[in-house]
Design a protein around this nucleic acid. Structure first.
Lengths: 339, 339
DNA sequence: CGGCCCGTTGCATTCGAAGTCATTTCCTGC
DNA sequence: GCAGGAAATGACTTCGAATGCAACGGGCCG
């Protein structure tokens, strides 16, 4: 029926080759390699031996075609350079592997690539997707339309179409801001993220809200893009024009940039002159050179939840979307006196 | 023939649905979606319209089965937490996407997982693999046997079986060590990587060789695992027992750990008391808090070469393996006076 | 006006495994 | 010794697109 051709490069045999070699049918070979099927021990042994002889490897592509399960999960990450995301990616990959799912990785250099990425996602018939990138309502709806379970990571789910896992900003910022206020800080500078970043906006909005609750307005505000360089630039701009006693950055990497400018360019003492706080809990923030006071996202719990949400939606496509919120944990550090 | 069933969740139509809708054969639909085939403009338009109506998406899985090209490339990275690798991964993904290839990502928590990963790689019939993890000779040979083009990233190719792209250690370490020697440093401490890391060993061996050429032996040696924490530990151990004037670390992250201990625990001045050098050129090394003197791997050139090597081996499977070496570029920094 | 050639198109087959259904085998209990 | 049933196995179909080959049609040239 299906003897393996030897055209060009060598290739591993098919289930038909194994079947012929073992003197059984292809169905039996298939059953041997599929858990939960009943095959006589003797037959199984014969098939395994034959498979070893011909170097048989089940073809996941062929299996996907008929089972309509590719065991692939698309993971979309917008900026891997953000230091926080490699950690997320590593955790996601680890957990997905443990569940027998493979990761099809997409990274975005610019947000405009997203439509091309989605097209590829549809083509590969992934079983689901975990997206840490901005998706419009229309794009989120496309996942429903294509029947691909979607979990958003640290991005808001539009109209409850998609499931999502987020680290809630309010309580974390509250801890930071209230601490600073208690310690007597009054002149705050804010370093926001890009305007189109929901997490960034949420954090800065939360910070601003706490200040307002205390009857204060930020003395200065600048926008960065979450990068260290933008943290440097924003801080230079702020301190050139204003006298501050606290800087609140939308993420750790910009906060580290702020620290660098304050200490190494402005000659200011942290936290004596100016306190600095961030958000994320990236590894370098904890290094002795910085010891940044920040809020750490519970990456383990969040990635675990993301995978779990995805699995349940794969298992039960009809299931309604869930939005999970996680609270960050205060990491005291040494860059802010927290009353 | 093949009308789309509506079992359970909605799914997008097949080429047969489009064919029926457009009044053409399935072959024609296939041709419309495949570049380099000849279809009458009018027909193409009809098919495109029909495809839009039924929401057709070419099924890459089905196409892979018959073409024997999955357009998937396995990327295996051993420790994403190493700060250098996220950058490599981002570049690789970007370049592979540009070539129409998708990334199947595998990360390793422990080296023992590698065999399970290889098994998955065979099953998915990837077109090629880029591996930044330790592979035994046997494992490398398996790629040849399975007919999967392999490019090793910063790992030595065994017996020229596999292609590889490496950042050569000798010239970089020479620049660093000779500079330190010129500046009068004589009492060196080395922080090596794990014994099974080829790059780590190569760098430390190169450093030692330069010292020997100058008639010196390292005063102290410790081993880390490339992590910041291990850099801290190694440095504590070294300075507790010896008086040094230079520390050479096998990578930047450990060097940053060394800096942290020297400055914030030991109260030593860098570079006045002790100079520190690393290797890689990771982003935080250039931040004002550190300004580490190091050698930067040419990530752009290396990833570009890795992808290019892979593409040519995919195109011409018979082609012999190539080993490419790249030289790192000195990043002067402020942690070492380079004579 | 006929023949030829090329651009289009359809038919039929193929890729490799999974699973349905029918058949065989063997064991059990009466 | 035979009916009943469970386990094991095989024949056959299916998933969705790509492609070799044959057929068709139109334009061009002689």
């Amino acid at each position: 029926m299906n003897p393996s051709r030897h055209h060009g490069g060598r290739q591993c045999g098919t289930s038909y080759d194994v079947a012929r070699e073992a003197g059984v049918s292809q169905s039996t070979v298939s059953r041997v390699f599929r858990p939960g099927t009943s095959v006589a021990p003797a037959t199984r042994a014969r098939v395994m031996a034959a498979a070893a002889r011909v170097g048989y490897r089940p073809n996941a592509i062929a299996a996907s075609l008929i089972t309509r399960r590719s065991n692939l999960v698309a993971v979309v990450i917008s900026n891997l350079t953000n230091l926080h995301y490699p950690e997320v990616l590593a955790e996601l990959t680890r957990r997905l592997s443990a569940e027998g799912l493979r990761v099809l990785l997409f990274t975005l250099s610019t947000e405009s690539e997203i439509d091309a990425v989605l097209d590829q996602i549809w083509r590969y018939r992934v079983d689901g997707a975990i997206v840490a990138a901005r998706l419009s309502a229309k794009q989120q709806a496309a996942f429903v339309h294509e029947g691909v379970p979607l979990v958003l990571y640290n991005r808001p789910g539009h109209d409850g179409i998609a499931s999502s896992v987020c680290c809630e900003a309010a309580s974390g910022e509250q801890l930071l801001i209230d601490g600073l206020l208690c310690a007597g800080r009054r002149r705050f500078g804010l370093i926001a993220g890009p305007a189109d970043s929901a997490v960034g906006e949420a954090r800065i909005a939360a910070a601003r809200a706490r200040l307002e609750a205390a009857g204060l307005l930020p003395v200065a505000e600048e926008r960065g893009d979450f990068s260290h360089a933008s943290g440097l630039a924003a801080t230079r701009a702020i301190i050139a024009a204003h006298r501050l006693d606290a800087i609140v950055a939308a993420n750790d990497v910009m906060a580290l940039g702020a620290l660098d400018v304050l200490r190494h360019e402005a000659g200011l003492a942290v936290p004596a002159d100016v306190a600095v706080v961030g958000f994320d809990g990236v590894a370098p923030a904890a290094w002795p050179a910085y010891r940044l006071t920040t809020v750490r996202q519970p990456v383990e719990a969040m990635t675990d939840a993301a995978v779990r949400l995805l699995l349940t939606r794969i298992a039960e496509p009809g299931r309604p979307a869930e939005q999970l919120l996680f609270a960050g944990a205060l990491v005291p550090g040494a860059t802010a006196p927290l009353g």
